[in-house]
Design a protein around this nucleic acid. Sequence first.
DNA 1: GGAACGCTTCGATCGGGCTCGAAGCGTCGA
DNA 2: TCGACGCTTCGAGCCCGATCGAAGCGTTCC
Lengths: 240, 240
Amino acid sequence: MLTTNAFAGIGALVGDPARASMLVALMDGRALTATELATVAGVTPQTASSHLAKLVAGELLAVERQGRHRYHRVATPAIAEMIESMMAVAATGTIARRRPLCTGPRDAMLRRARTCYDHLAGRVAVGIADRMITRGEIRLGADGGEVTERGAELLQSLGIEIPRADGRRGGRAFCRPCLDWSERRPHIAGAVGKALLAHSIDTLWLRPIAGSRAVIVTPLGRDALTRLFGLAPDIWDDPI
Amino acid sequence: MLTTNAFAGIGALVGDPARASMLVALMDGRALTATELATVAGVTPQTASSHLAKLVAGELLAVERQGRHRYHRVATPAIAEMIESMMAVAATGTIARRRPLCTGPRDAMLRRARTCYDHLAGRVAVGIADRMITRGEIRLGADGGEVTERGAELLQSLGIEIPRADGRRGGRAFCRPCLDWSERRPHIAGAVGKALLAHSIDTLWLRPIAGSRAVIVTPLGRDALTRLFGLAPDIWDDPI
DNA sequence: GGAACGCTTCGATCGGGCTCGAAGCGTCGA
DNA sequence: TCGACGCTTCGAGCCCGATCGAAGCGTTCC
């Protein structure tokens, strides 16, 4: 079976710890250089080069040359989704469940707010999803979700344009639940989640941290998100 | 990073050809014995036992003892979704795209109609999705889909009860697009796809083949599906 | 032009894991 | 009770691939 071999090949590509680290690092959607990825993976540049060549040949990563740098990024959204679903499985495993996923002040930031490929994740993102559901602005089920009319009004009032499912103006905007690794509950992914994150960065509500998936919630963003999405004030406090 | 290690572990588990074959074979949702899986993977029972032990330890498979048999199945729907997304990536790769996925009379059946974990896949499934979209019975987008009121009426008239997204009666029924490996276009997955397949088997429209993911479309099913979903007659002909 | 830098290629080493034969354990049927 | 069967464990062989040093190529900066 040709597909089965390709399937195993994908697994083997992801199966090496160094390559896995690289893929995880690229899951925020940015493009990183070979040297940066070597540092992330904890290997020498030669080894990283070999790994990156394999990932590019396997079409998991795409590469662009810029001068003497080579920027690597996740090749397609489908691949990012695949990695997401694999991490969701990995995060629910016994080994990961045994003790808290991460500790320390740096990881407290990750748990609070981080990027998940093209949308927001973490305690804040789950809180936003919770409130939008209870206020009837979105609906989320096991198989998908959508923005309600009330939700569309809210987003439009913020200046966020949500692409419709079928391209037509009158169509419905779907969104996708994405299991949050740290919270173990869904946050909003898909076009809606992407637009929400982009808008939050544009308006300086959130500020990405270079070299990390964590994002800083600015004082401006804290006020805006609390007000607009009716977040509980204690969402900003890191639990012990 | 604990999660990254677990992530790489999942990849390594899937990365072996023998284990990959087993997982693919189990993707129709049935539970198979260790010996059956050894045959599928083309390895000796000892080797299969070792692989299965790893897959069970990694919580990708669950096992049930029945007398001297051990039945293995995909542990959770989340894992089946993960495998699906990996196969979708594998099926779009250059290697798989180079030549037709499969040939021969046995594979013609697979291309026509097969199970995809808990729902139907293949040319017929894609045809059903196409027609339901054009007739306004379902909507499918990149991030999800839903059953329209007209679609709900159709399904209800067939005696298919679709679980609502939020459990409430008035709620909306979401469904999920799933990229068809052989057709390279989406068919219907999620609760709606599952209910549709179950109903088709109950009514003897479809008959699963033991030891294969292919399903036979009975004459009864051919008539019913053509009539109910307005399929083009040539969908039953295998292209050369 | 020369040096520093980013990245790749080549070659050698080495460890992990896949594989199967042989043997052992539990279950089923006669 | 005995043999057949399904499956697992143990052990040894063996191959693949990850890793890094050394060297080479192209780019940038001074």
